[in-house]
């Protein structure tokens, strides 16, 4: 029996492609965020609200990742923002390679803010760097306040937390302070926003922060 020592990161190929993506974003002055959450937490709704706020101020492009259908890309295109749909056909997360392919259909030179909406899943996307500047994790109040503890990776690897659907708090026994505290225990440097896409609460704060990051 002979032993061959290897010592290589399993996802190094993804990391290398992500690094190329990142270089392309930097070269074209594109600020990129990767939005992650469980299915249905409100990623596309937040994006729609964000577009309403930032349109005319910033040039946006969107890459949508879904297991099936181009529904989300159509929702974004309806707002006159260029959107490219990646359909993973069962794949539970986006990989850097898929984003790189989609980038061929994104006009990077005309884009200041690129939003990548990941596949709804709180586990798998956390392992895959896409080349983004920040991961933004969304949790909705209907999911309960213990999500950060159950899915620590995602919260540790994100820089922003959006607690969405705060309009529903009166009907739920979700304590959003507890949710926030749990998240901050996992990652004290998280920047936290609380939003409702129904009432529009908190969208201003989120968008102002985002705009300031893009224009930095």
């Amino acid at each position: 029996m002979s032993v061959i020592t290897i010592e290589r990161k399993v996802l190094e190929k993804n990391d290398q492609i992500a690094q190329k993506n990142r270089e392309d974003f930097t070269a074209n002055n594109v600020f990129t965020i990767n939005i992650v959450s469980s299915p249905g937490s409100g990623k596309t709704s937040i994006l729609e609200r964000t577009i309403e706020h930032l349109k005319g101020k910033l040039n946006l492009s969107v890459i949508e990742g879904d297991v099936q259908t181009d529904n989300d890309a159509r929702r974004i295109s309806a707002l006159d923002v260029p959107a490219v749909q990646i359909v993973t056909h069962g794949g539970c997360h986006l990989e850097a390679r898929l984003v790189r392919d989609a980038m061929e259909n994104v006009d990077l030179q005309k884009t200041q803010l690129l939003v990548i909406e990941n596949v709804g899943n709180l586990v798998c996307p956390s392992n895959y760097d896409l080349g983004e500047a920040h991961k933004v994790v969304v949790v909705s109040t209907t999911e309960g306040d213990d999500k950060p503890i159950k899915y620590p990776n995602m919260f540790r690897n994100s820089s922003v937390l959006i607690i969405n659907k705060i309009d529903l708090v009166p009907y739920l026994n979700c304590n959003i302070d507890e949710l926030e505290n749990n998240a901050l225990q996992i990652n004290p440097s998280l920047k936290v926003f609380k939003t409702s896409c129904t009432t529009g609460d908190g969208i201003d704060e989120w968008c102002s922060w985002l705009e300031s990051q893009v224009l930095k």
Binding site: M1, S2, V3, I4, T5, I6, E7, K9, V10, N127
Partner: peptide, 8 residues
């Protein structure tokens, strides 16, 4: 998450 060695 690393591949460390193989035995042949």
């Amino acid at each position: 998450l690393q591949v460390t060695e193989i035995e042949i």
